[in-house]
Amino acid sequence: MSDFSPQQGGLAVGDRVVVTGASGFLGRHLVGRLRAAGVEVATPSRGEGFDLLNDQLPLDGATHVFHLAAETGVPDSWQDPARFHLVNTHGTVRVLDQCRRAGCAMTYVGAYIYGVPQHLPIDETHPVNANNPYAYSKWMGEQACEWYADMYSMGVTAIRLFNTYGPGQSNRFLIPRIVEQVIDPTVERIELMDLAPRRDYLYVDDAVDALLAARGLPGYRLYNVGSGVSHSISDVLESAMRQAGIRKEVVDLQQVRPNEIPDVRADCSRIGRECGWRPRFSLDEGIERMLEEVRK
């Protein structure tokens, strides 16, 4: 269970917030946490007919907006970069402008935009290398956040999330796909393209903690949010088999992806100093929680 209380970040029981992208993986966890704490949450979503590019957010009585809605997926972004820019950049500008007029603060959930690291760990001053249309669109949304915060004296926090994982995530992502193969009795051996790349994997409850801890601050704030530890794909697989108590043959196809990033590790000291946040879950603990959900 989380240690989040309704008063954290200035929230109180009965407060009203808006979460865009609430039907997504992170959005569902955030909304669940807020509602469990007695916070009223409005969840305009595409599934309910809400159009980020044309409709108005339900901001009456709201004190804060968590803006998670976005077009996602690097491969898809190469096929339609203009659509990604329209939704992720212009859509963010629309949310910012509505927040400005309603007097709401905003939290913007960004993405990893550093490319191949020049140094590890990666802090917020590391040069940006938005090397795909998705990253570029999220970076432009981030720039809009800083501009609105400066020009209109708004409270806007931008969060650069690293590789978030947890229960309920699509198996299009690495860790759920590995866990699924480990526990599936019809899968006799696990084949992976490349076991070497290392990533900073952040458990979803830690990501939600960071969003809540960093809200309600004055001016523009920018924070990296990750575990601060990197793990290889081999590490992830070994953890999943160990936690599940299952051993299977593993085949490393040694197919290195073009423009592969060898290692990623976040420096999260800024959000630690300014908001008191730190990750609580190790990779083993996060994967064990995923397995518990599957067993249920």
Rank of each mutant, 00 (worst) to 15 (best):
S2F: 05
S2P: 04
S5V: 14
L11M: 06
A12N: 14
V13E: 14
D15N: 02
D15R: 07
R16D: 08
V19P: 12
G24H: 03
G27R: 11
L30R: 06
V31N: 08
R33D: 09
R35T: 13
F50S: 00
L52E: 02
N54C: 09
L59Y: 05
H64W: 15
T72C: 09
T72P: 03
G73V: 10
G73H: 07
P75Q: 01
W78L: 00
Q79D: 14
D80H: 15
D80N: 15
F84S: 01
H85Y: 14
T89S: 12
T89R: 05
H90C: 12
H90F: 11
H90P: 04
V95Y: 05
L96H: 10
A102G: 04
A102N: 05
A102S: 11
A105T: 11
M106T: 05
M106N: 02
V109E: 10
V109N: 08
A111R: 04
Y112I: 01
G115L: 11
N129S: 11
A130G: 07
Y134Q: 09
A135H: 00
A135R: 11
Y136V: 14
S137V: 12
S137W: 06
K138S: 01
A144M: 11
A144W: 04
A144F: 07
Y152Q: 04
M154C: 02
M154W: 01
M154T: 01
A158T: 15
L161H: 08
T164K: 00
P167D: 14
L174Y: 10
I175C: 12
I175G: 08
R177Q: 09
I178N: 03
V179D: 01
E180G: 13
V182I: 09
I183W: 00
D184I: 05
V187L: 12
V187D: 10
E188I: 07
R189A: 15
R189K: 15
E191Y: 00
E191H: 09
L192M: 07
M193P: 07
P197R: 02
D200Q: 14
L202D: 01
L202H: 06
Y203V: 09
Y203R: 06
A207R: 02
D209P: 04
L211A: 07
L211R: 05
A213G: 06
G216F: 00
L217I: 02
G219W: 11
L222T: 10
L222M: 08
Y223K: 04
N224R: 00
V229D: 01
S230Y: 09
H231L: 00
H231Q: 11
I233K: 13
V236T: 09
V236M: 06
M241L: 07
Q243A: 15
Q243T: 12
A244N: 05
I246S: 10
R247M: 08
R247G: 02
E249Q: 09
Q255W: 07
D263T: 06
V264I: 15
R265D: 03
D267G: 03
R270V: 13
E274V: 09
C275K: 05
G276N: 07
G276V: 04
R278L: 14
P279L: 02
E285T: 04
G286N: 07
I287R: 02
E292K: 12
